[in-house]
Design a protein around this nucleic acid. Structure first.
Length: 566
RNA sequence: GCGCCAGUAGCUCAGUGGAGAGAGCGCUACCCUGCGGAGGUAGAGGUCAGAGGUUCGAAUCCUCUCUGGCGUACCA
């Protein structure tokens, strides 16, 4: 990455200044380069002189000068500038930028890939909504965040797996089964009451119809009888299939759908269940206590403020027990180095507990990172729409995708930081779907594709073009924008916040649009890509080709289509 | 009560302790004998919730207050 290389130059210059006695022998802090707001201040700026001033007991400007004049000349940066109160401003050299155009074309979409993951295994688990109802709009946020985060981690050099944790055990599952049972019986004219707190949504009636179509009357029982287990399992399976279809239409594919229930069963290859093994380990480490007939994970030396129940007094393990077993499985059995759980903020009370559990369970448990995203509040004009599966008043992700499209919906979710609350006005979203900023990025891609096609039809080829002919400010600005893609990927892979990529996409598209319209503003047809000058045309085609690669890569990471025409 | 997350332009939101605070939408004025106008340029619009503090430097870090969301289960 250019930034790293420039930072290394600054550090080398600072060391040289110390070695030559121009600076006192002070400890050098890590050289972090800032990106100046104002382009006139260059591509990068170092505030190192300001940080050193006190220890060195020298004026910052003098330090800046001492470092700047020792900057190795290796062709990456042009002559550095010193600016008050003590900045060193660094500008990428034209020759370097021109060479990068060729490098991007040669490497293709992988040009921005990084090695910071170093092949370590990462898992991103996201959405994982109970399969007791359709996904709602809030789940869409988790889906977009998790999926793009996984893509960014892969681009950063991790071996990434996407996983959906299917809650197919527990009280909610039982309630779902009983509701389905009642709906099913009603189809056959039996009197059957929806259980208290059961799922009231219409989709449950649809599901019962689907069951009848597939399996006929084989699940018929007396109205008072409990739900046949096979009916409950079928219901969950059908619901999971619907969720999977929704996510696929949202551009999300999982490597694995992990069953909660399987944690409590012996693995196919034999041996003890994950829960059994985890429990044995906790017991051996003396982390369990029995009280009031239940089994508790003790808070002591886990940094928790209270104990948590893992096995209820009736002998059934809690959801927390499943979570412990699940993370035991992730770290100890599957050996992930980095595990990211993407959760809605309504689960935040659970975070420290699970993190403490993971650390108690595995040496590698510190590799767990829970990424919380704030809930999406929905509005239709002035009315607040409630989101609740059990009440049945729900705006589904399917509806959102149908109304605004997958690309626009994903981009909407990816534009804001996970930690910020979002307000989603459905009326506005539909009304503005044609003005959605997502099209700004896609349109840039479509124009590039069309331009490249048109040039080919006119007999122009980027082959043999000389990127050194790219000297106009808008041309070089576009190259600069392309080269920030690896920085955006790094930011996402280290902060686990994918919205930076969405912001970057807008920035890159803006650089292209400005480039593309430059000749109009200046009334200079000479700035068009396809010109009478064959050599210049070939050079600009190379730039267009590289820009299209960068733009296509961003869209790919965001999980959006890269249209050739719109 | 306690805890977590937030409060930045009319609206929806960016902003890694660094140099006149940004984008999209909305508003105003311009720019096409066009490689695609779903575009570009310029402008109006801000007490970065408020008050202290740390720092050479704070929207950013710390403390308090106010406002909003969420949590505080032998539910998941």
């Amino acid at each position: 990455m250019p930034r790293e290389r420039v930072a290394a130059l600054v550090e080398a210059a600072a060391r040289a200044a110390i070695a030559e006695g121009a600076l006192p022998d002070v400890a050098l802090p890590a050289v972090a380069l800032e990106r100046p707001r104002d382009a006139a201040h260059g591509d990068y700026a170092s505030s190192l002189p300001l940080r050193l001033a006190r220890a060195a007991t020298m004026p910052p400007l003098a330090i800046a000068a001492a470092i700047a004049e020792r900057l190795p000349a290796d062709g990456i940066v042009a002559a550095p500038e010193v600016a008050p109160p003590g900045f060193i401003n660094l500008r990428l050299a034209d020759g370097f930028l021109q060479g990068e155009v060729d490098r991007v074309i040669a490497r293709g979409a992988a040009f921005a890939d990084l090695a910071i993951g170093a092949g370590r295994r990462a898992q991103v688990e996201f959405v994982s909504a109970n399969p007791t109802g359709p996904l709602h709009v809030g789940n869409g946020r988790g889906a977009a965040i998790g999926d793009t985060l996984a893509s960014a981690l892969a681009a950063a050099g991790y071996a990434v797996e996407r996983e959906y944790y299917v809650n197919d055990a527990g009280a909610q599952t039982a309630l779902f089964a009983e509701t389905l049972h009642a709906r099913y019986l009603r189809l056959f004219g039996r009197e059957a009451a929806i259980p208290d707190g059961g799922y009231r949504g219409e989709y449950m009636a649809d599901l019962a119809v689907e069951v009848r179509e597939r399996e006929g009357d084989r699940f018929l029982t007396d109205p008072g009888a409990p739900c046949p287990p096979a009916l409950g399992e079928l219901g969950i399976a059908l619901m999971v299939a619907r969720i999977r279809a929704t996510l696929e239409s949202f551009g999300v594919r999982y490597d694995r759908w992990f069953s909660e229930r399987s944690l409590h069963e012996p693995p196919p290859e034999g041996g003890e269940s994950a829960w059994g093994a985890a429990l044995a380990r906790l017991r051996a480490d003396g982390r369990l206590t029995e009280r009031e007939g239940a089994l508790w994970l003790t808070a002591a030396d886990l940094g928790e403020d209270k104990d948590n129940v893992v096995v209820r007094s009736d002998g059934r393990p809690t959801y927390f027990a499943s979570d412990i077993a699940y993370h035991y499985d992730k770290f100890e059995r599957r050996g992930f180095d980095l595990v990211i759980d993407v959760w809605g903020a309504d689960h935040h009370g659970h975070v420290s507990r699970v993190e403490a559990g993971a650390e108690a369970m595995s040496e590698r448990g510190g590799g767990l990172h829970v990424l919380l995203y704030q809930l999406v509040t929905l509005r239709r004009g002035d009315a607040v729409a409630r989101v609740s599966k059990r009440s049945g008043d729900i705006v589904t992700l399917d509806q959102l995708i149908e109304e605004v499209g997958s690309d626009a919906a994903r981009f909407f979710f990816l534009r804001s930081a996970p930690g910020s609350q979002m307000e989603f006005d459905l009326d506005l979203a539909v009304k503005q779907s044609n003005e959605n900023p997502v099209y700004y990025i896609q349109y840039a891609h479509a124009r590039l594709a069309s331009m490249i096609d048109r040039a080919a039809a006119a007999g122009h080829s980027p082959e043999g073009g000389d990127a050194a002919l790219l000297t106009a400010p808008h041309e070089l600005a576009l190259v600069r924008a392309m080269l920030r893609l690896p920085e955006a990927i790094e930011l996402v892979a280290t902060t686990f916040e994918p919205h930076h990529l969405a912001r970057y996409g807008t920035e890159l598209a803006a650089a292209f649009h400005a480039f593309n319209d430059a000749f109009r503003q200046q009334g200079d047809p000479g700035l068009k890509v396809i010109t009478d000058d064959a050599a210049l045309t070939a050079a600009r085609l190379r730039l267009a080709l590289a820009a299209r690669i960068a733009l296509g890569r961003v869209l790919e990471l965001l999980g959006m289509s890269a249209p050739e025409r719109m």
